[in-house]
Every structure is written in C-alpha cells, then in structure tokens.
Amino acid sequence: MTDLSDVAVLIPAFNGQADVERTLASFRETSPVRVLIVDDGSTPPIVAPAVDGMQIEILRMPKNGGIERALQTGIEALAARGVRYAARIDAGDLATPGRLDKQRAYMEAHPRVAVLGMWTHVVSTDGAPLFDLRPPAEPAAIRRTMLARTCFTHPSLMLRIDAVIDAGNYRARYRAAEDLDLILRLMERHDGANLPEFGLFYELNEGGISATKRRAQVISTLRLQLRHLRVTNLLDWFGVVKSIAHLLLPYRALRGLKAKLLKTTSSA
C-alpha cells in the first residue's frame, strides 16, 4: 500500500455540491486520501460527503473571492498542516485510478520537479469525449514550448508545496490565468513535467472560466507571455500571435478548430 499521508487533494468550490461529490467519488487509490475543499462562499455551504477511504476537510471563505484567492488560501492551509504535495482537481472533473500514487512516486524520484501534470481526456458535461490533450512530458520540451501552447492541464497538477510557497503562491495579479502565472514562476527555479498517461477527465463547461472569463484569461496570458518572452525563441513569438488571435476571433470558432485539429492529430 502506497503512503499518501503527505498528499492532499485541493479543490476550490463555489456551489456545485453534486459536482464536488462526483469528483471525490472518482478517486481510486490503494491508501487513504486526504482532501481539502476550499468553499469560496457557497450558498448553501458545501457539505463534506461521506466517501470511503477519504479524510475530507472544508475550509470556508467568508465570502466569494475568486479561484485565485481560494487556491492561495488552500496552499497556505496545507503548508501549515505539513502537507508536502497538493493534487489539484476541480469540481466536475474526474480522476483516473491511481493518479495520486503515480504522481507522488514521480515527484519523489525527481526532486527538481515542482509541478507535475498528466495527459487529459476532455469531455462534455454529459461525459461525451471531445478531444485529448497530450502535452510534452519532458522538462526540456516544456521549457521550449511553454509560452506557445498549453503545456499543463491545471486540474491534473501535483504541486510541491514548499516550492509553491517560495515562488509566492497563487496570486490574483493575472486573473483567470493564475495557473500559468504560478507555473512560470516555479519554472524559474524548478522543473515541470507531465506523466505521459491519462490522469484526468476534464469537463468542458460553457459556464466555466475558459468561456465566461475568456477575454480576461487571454489578456492575462498575453501579459505573462510578454513578461517572460525570450526574444530569440520563435515559439514564444508564436504564442504571442496566437493570444492576439484569440482576442480577435470568436470563442466557439476557436474551440471548434482546436477540437478538429486535436482529433485529427489523435487519429493520425
């Protein structure tokens, strides 16, 4: 039995009790799983479900302050409790069996890695497959392409908590792109990697951040790209051009094109 006592699943939640319960029920590990739900001012408040093999704690925010503040508070709470690794997932997404075990084993074997993702199945709200995300796995490949494409699926991440605290934690400076902001800061002193196997079913929800806060997300991404731009890396410039295109073109058209391209790639 793998020891997961130094790992905690970190879920920020605003309403969505049923989604929280479905997500927690998806975990299949060989040892008990610790969970911290940061209730970001839900009405009614999120209630911890009874799930076999899970120790669930709820940290309630006094009012809704956004995912950035909820994640920052969650990381601080886990650090205070002596937890070493935070495994991110969002309400509505599903974990594949053994995800935590696999990620922790990799992090233990690769101490330079502070952020570890996994490949992702993207599905609709009714569970129908849409496309797959297979970003680069190795740190060197991720460094080359990290401003040109999405190299990590945020809800698939396992984070080394002491490194996150040292890097300044999550912050609200780049709204709706808090994950990219944190990852870029982490990779100034550490490595990032992906396990080249599927660890997550990511629910693409038209009401999620990528749709409702799309413009803010793209602007924040563009600001980060310009801040971290390596002028001799053509891929960085490609990322900037792509972000500008995202500002000018409709969301649905871009999403449809992305899904078509990814399906073509997967079947090739």
Rank of each mutant, 00 (worst) to 15 (best):
A77C: 05
S210K: 08
L182H: 00
R230H: 14
V9P: 03
L257D: 10
H190E: 11
V241D: 11
R22M: 02
V33I: 10
R215P: 02
K242H: 12
L24W: 07
N205E: 01
S220M: 11
N194L: 02
A105R: 08
P135G: 08
R223E: 05
D132M: 07
V38I: 09
Y174N: 10
Q225A: 02
P32T: 10
A259W: 04
T212M: 08
A86W: 01
S42L: 09
V218E: 10
L226A: 06
E29T: 09
T221S: 04
H110L: 13
L147H: 11
S5M: 04
R143I: 02
E76L: 08
V240F: 14
V7L: 01
V231T: 03
I37R: 06
L226K: 00
M187E: 07
L224T: 09
N64H: 07
D19C: 00
D162C: 09
L186K: 00
L186E: 05
D166V: 01
A77Y: 02
F201A: 11
Y251L: 12
D191C: 00
A95W: 12
M1T: 14
G53K: 12
P111D: 03
I56T: 09
A25P: 02
T2G: 07
S42C: 09
D179V: 11
S42W: 07
L59T: 11
Y251S: 15
A268S: 13
V9W: 08
T145M: 14
R175G: 00
M107F: 05
A172G: 14
P155H: 09
V9D: 08
S156P: 08
A48M: 14
I75Q: 08
L235D: 14
N64S: 08
N64P: 03
A167G: 14
E57C: 05
A253Y: 13
L184T: 03
L186A: 03
V47A: 08
L200M: 06
L229W: 15
L226I: 13
R223D: 07
A25K: 13
P250D: 14
V47Q: 01
V33M: 07
Y85I: 10
R81N: 02
A128P: 06
R255F: 15
D6V: 05
L10K: 06
L94G: 08
R60G: 00
A79Y: 09
Y106P: 02
M146A: 06
L229I: 07
I46A: 05
V123I: 10
G53S: 04
T221W: 00
D90R: 10
P135V: 11
S124G: 11
T43V: 14
G98H: 07
I142W: 12
N205I: 01
I56Y: 03
P45D: 02
L180Q: 04
G65T: 04
A48N: 13
I67Y: 06
G66N: 02
A163T: 12
R81C: 01
D40I: 06
A268H: 13
L4Y: 06
G41S: 04
Y251I: 11
A137E: 10
L249H: 01
A172D: 11
M146Q: 10
F131K: 10
T125P: 12
A8R: 05
R189Y: 04
